[in-house]
């Protein structure tokens, strides 16, 4: 056959007769796509800058502490360890989650891709679980990496590394569990907020606003107790005495600090005393209260997320 103009030879359509793995494969695909989206893989450089920057920022404290520990020794006063790591990176983690998590839900709705997903062998719940677990995985990788760097740093800094491991191996399961607690929290809330707006930016601003603004609000409502302790940047207090509202109820108001909620659970997992803001107040409450509060603040947004997608109109 002679083609006058060198046309591309059409191979003809071939039917697909390979394996079809149905719903399980669909779930995996949603998960993998979620992880890739979060990290900006398969996208332009613009999408990689933010996660990269935030990843480095969360890793940095672990590296710095390891280096300091290797110089001044493990027992240096005030050097944070595994117990204090999540508290230290919590602000960074919030910024990371608030900015990246909406990437996994908002564009799908804004671009209309969601309607292509839901006609495939995939339910709304499959989709949400896939997205949620994708961002959870990314967050877990992030915080575990930091803790691992810290652990390796401490082992190397120890005079007798072998003994250090024997004495401190329990920290590993502790930080694994605490990391899960923190990651579930910082995954669920931003995703729930993302289900209310198609604009990623507004979701991010709302989440960060919620976490940042709750700090001074809690500060005001717990003034009395805090004035003895670690008042942020203050010169000490002029009023030492307790007040009717903030005196008795301060320990309850301390729960209002959203960012601190998983940290209180973290503090229960580690034996070390936490001297951070509001932790001393929450300690006055029975353990079950902060745990119940944590569960409410993860299950609640989780339910809201599911409920929002139940009623989605395509």
């Amino acid at each position: 056959m002679i083609e006058a103009q060198g046309e591309v030879f059409d191979l003809g359509y071939k039917h697909y007769d390979g394996p079809r793995e149905g719903r399980m494969r669909a779930r995996k695909a949603i998960w993998i796509n979620g992880v890739r989206t979060a990290l900006g893989i398969g996208r332009g450089w613009g999408s990689k800058v933010l996660p990269g920057l935030l990843f480095v920022a969360v890793m940095l404290p672990a590296l710095v502490i390891s280096l300091v520990a290797s110089q001044v020794g493990l027992l240096a006063q005030g050097l944070p360890g595994h117990a204090g790591y999540y508290q230290m990176v919590s602000t960074l983690l919030i910024i990371f989650s608030a900015i990246i998590a909406p990437e996994l839900l908002c564009p799908d709705r804004r671009d209309g891709v969601i309607s292509l997903y839901l006609v495939r062998p995939l339910t709304t719940t499959d989709y949400l679980v896939g997205r949620w677990s994708a961002f959870l995985s990314v967050t877990l990788a992030l915080v575990y990496l930091g803790q691992t760097v810290l652990f390796i740093g401490f082992v190397l800094a120890a005079d007798e590394p072998g003994n250090y491991i024997l004495d401190n191996w329990l920290n590993v399961p502790r930080f694994l569990l605490a990391g899960l607690v923190v990651a579930i929290f910082t995954t669920t809330i931003p995703l729930a907020v993302s289900s209310f707006t198609n604009r990623r930016a507004y979701a991010a601003a709302f989440v960060i606003g919620l976490f940042i603004i709750s700090v001074p609000i809690t500060g005001v409502l717990t003034i009395c107790e805090n004035s003895h302790g670690t008042q942020q940047g203050g010169l000490g207090s002029e009023s030492g005495q307790c007040k009717p509202l903030t005196g008795k109820a301060a320990k309850w108001f301390a729960l209002l600090n959203v960012g601190g909620v998983p940290i209180h659970v973290n503090d229960m997992i580690f034996p070390e005393e936490n001297t951070s803001e509001f932790a001393n107040l929450v300690d006055e409450l029975p353990d079950v209260v902060p745990v119940a509060w944590y569960l409410l603040l993860t299950a609640g947004p989780g339910f809201v997320l599911w409920w929002r997608y139940r009623r989605i109109r395509i």
Binding site: I208, G219, S227, E238, P244, T246
Partner: peptide
Amino acid sequence: LISNVEGKFSNSEFINHILDGLLIAGILPI
């Protein structure tokens, strides 16, 4: 709320929490 219920609000408390923490570092930029 604080000034009515507690009846007192120290200078530094007001400045640190309300003015700086809440307004200038939080609400203003948002």
